[in-house]
Write a protein that binds this DNA or RNA. Structure first.
Ligand SMILES: [Mn+2]
Ligand SMILES: [Mn+2]
Ligand SMILES: [Zn+2]
Ligand SMILES: [Zn+2]
Lengths: 126, 126
DNA sequence: TTATTATTACAACTGAGTTGCAAATGTAGA
DNA sequence: TCTACATTTGCAACTCAGTTGTAATAATAA
């Protein structure tokens, strides 16, 4: 959806997702980069990167919006659907590279689904 | 968690969940009952009913909070975990009386999970 | 009926996310 | 390299679901 210009904001945000292999919330990115870039810019860049199939988004436990890198998506085909894991101890959110078996639901057309699993992550699980 | 008094607000809210067998968002309840009761009251009664194991809550697609009746829960044991279905056409949200098979995730302790399935409901699915 | 305590209304607040717009900047084409 | 122009940015103001403090009110037990 539209041209992506190699602006400073796009560069820095993409770098953030490259260094950490986890999901990042818009709020966390604003906390971290809010003095360098305006929060509106951050929201809009994330939005655009999602439109372009670079990032995908989902809602975390408190209704906050989270983003993570897509693998093999394009602006027309967002087939990067997988469950997410949120650590209730450290707050970290990860994409799970597994497929979910949805329950059978008669007489309904399933279009999307989102599974959020919460618990203790590898580091916090003693 | 604390005594529940049979107040007008509790009565009316419980009645709302009895007549319709679907989930209701706090927002919808305020739209509907906001002239009769203050929105703060509605939020607080819903909160308390959840604490008492009468209702359970979850987040819908836009991050709105939804509530539905529990079956066999108490204030100490909220074992009413099941997926929810939200119709993308009419907005209706239902509890699905099925169990979800969670994917295997090594080295992590799963505590909670929430699955939201979206699509077309029985009425909207032509 | 009265004392106690939970519940309510109200108004003010919170905070993630959005919007409109003018200024700044990236990029294609000359 | 320069120019034109569409895209992107910062800013300030806004939205709106949900929260908080508090004084008044209502349910319940004694
Ligand atoms: Mn993901
Ligand atoms: Mn339910
Ligand atoms: Zn953790
Ligand atoms: Zn429907």
């Amino acid at each position: 959806m539209g041209v992506i210009r190699k602006t400073k904001a796009v560069e820095v945000l993409l770098a953030a997702f490259d260094t950490k292999a986890v999901a990042l919330s818009a709020k966390a990115l604003i906390d971290q980069l809010g003095t360098t870039f305006n929060k509106t810019t951050i929201y809009r860049v994330l939005d655009k990167l999602e439109d372009d199939g670079v990032l995908h988004s989902f809602l975390g436990k408190e209704g906050l919006k989270w983003y993570a890198k897509c693998h093999g998506c394009t602006s027309t085909a967002h087939h990067d659907v997988h469950p997410h894991f949120q650590c209730l101890n450290c707050g970290k959110v990860e994409c799970l590279a597994v497929s979910v078996t949805l329950p059978k639901i008669p007489n309904r057309k399933i279009e999307v689904s989102q599974l959020l699993i919460q618990g203790k992550c590898e580091e916090c699980f003693i």
